[in-house]
């Protein structure tokens, strides 16, 4: 069983929106048709996007931390959007676990978008069908591309390599190792959707120095210098005496 997914490292995401623009660029030019925009330069622009980068702030000034949070379809292993679809347009591919919409079957009833707790689906206001991240299904299998380019557009665009792509069911894949060893977590685990995409938490490298490590506890006279060498006849303890 293969389950392709993204692993997004919040520790290195700088919130540059390169994944957002490259996603839009790739997917609006694809064979599945454009992703419509309205009033792109007007007062109230709106449009269809598969990927967004949001920004959150934790804490209160001055002790704050900014979290840039890229948000796209999580390709849940138990996707709640799929069984509710009345036409079968919304489906999960058994071969690689990608959740897709068949634009030719979709009736645009929006029920699947209600059934996604993450709000990852958007209706295209002009084509009137539900759209969502395809994990760039039209490029990851494209054999006309060199192998290292067969990755989702957002992954290739990321300047800090905050986005990893691979099979989360293969325990030795880079994404599985990242999830396992860097504390990868799923969003809203309370609904049991088992998202395939994981996020890596923000990590801090802190040097822990205790006070007694700054001051030599065995130097009561505060005299710096070499310790007096005990006599060879004195009782000794391993690692304490020096000969």
């Amino acid at each position: 069983m293969t389950q392709l997914a993204l692993v997004i490292d919040l520790n290195v995401c700088v919130g540059c929106h390169a994944c957002v623009t490259s996603c839009k660029e790739w997917n609006t030019s694809g064979s599945a048709g454009y992703m419509s925009d309205d009033r792109p330069y007007g007062a109230d622009p709106t449009g269809t996007f598969f990927n967004r980068v949001q920004t959150f702030e934790c804490g209160e000034f001055p002790n704050t931390e900014t979290v840039h949070f890229p948000k796209s379809c999580l390709h849940c292993e138990d996707p709640p959007c799929v069984p509710v679809c009345p036409t079968g347009a919304s489906y999960k591919r058994p071969e690689d676990g990608i959740v897709l919409v068949d634009y030719d079957l979709c009736i645009g009833c929006k029920y699947c978008s209600w059934a996604c707790p993450y709000g990852m689906r958007e209706i295209d206001e002009h084509q009137k069908v539900m759209k969502k991240c395809t994990l760039c299904v039209d490029r990851i299998y494209d054999e006309s591309l060199p192998e290292e380019r067969r990755q989702p557009a957002c992954v290739l665009a990321c300047p800090t390599s905050a986005r990893l792509f691979g099979d989360v069911h293969d325990p030795e894949s880079s994404v599985s190792i990242a999830i396992r060893e860097s504390g990868g977590y799923a969003l809203m685990p309370e609904w049991g959707t088992k998202p395939a995409n994981h996020y890596l938490p923000r990590r801090k490298t802190r040097l822990k120095i205790h006070e007694d490590e700054l001051v030599r506890a065995d130097n009561p006279l505060k005299k710096e210098g070499k310790l007096p060498k005990p006599k060879i006849t004195d009782p000794s303890l391993d690692d304490v005496t020096s000969w």
Binding site: H17, V20, R39, D44, P45, T46, G47, T48, F49, R52, V53, Q54, T55, F56, E57, C58, G59, E60, E65, T66, V67, F69, K71, S113, P117, Y118, R121, E122, I123, E125, Y185, A186, L187, M188, P189, E190, W191, Y199, P201, R202
Partner: peptide, 27 residues
Amino acid sequence: KSTLQTAIGVRHQRIAQKSQGFMGGSF
């Protein structure tokens, strides 16, 4: 059941959104 903490997976009592990623409206 869902909170901002579970939504972005950061365990902090004070989380405030600073940007939703776009200035206009969306679906």
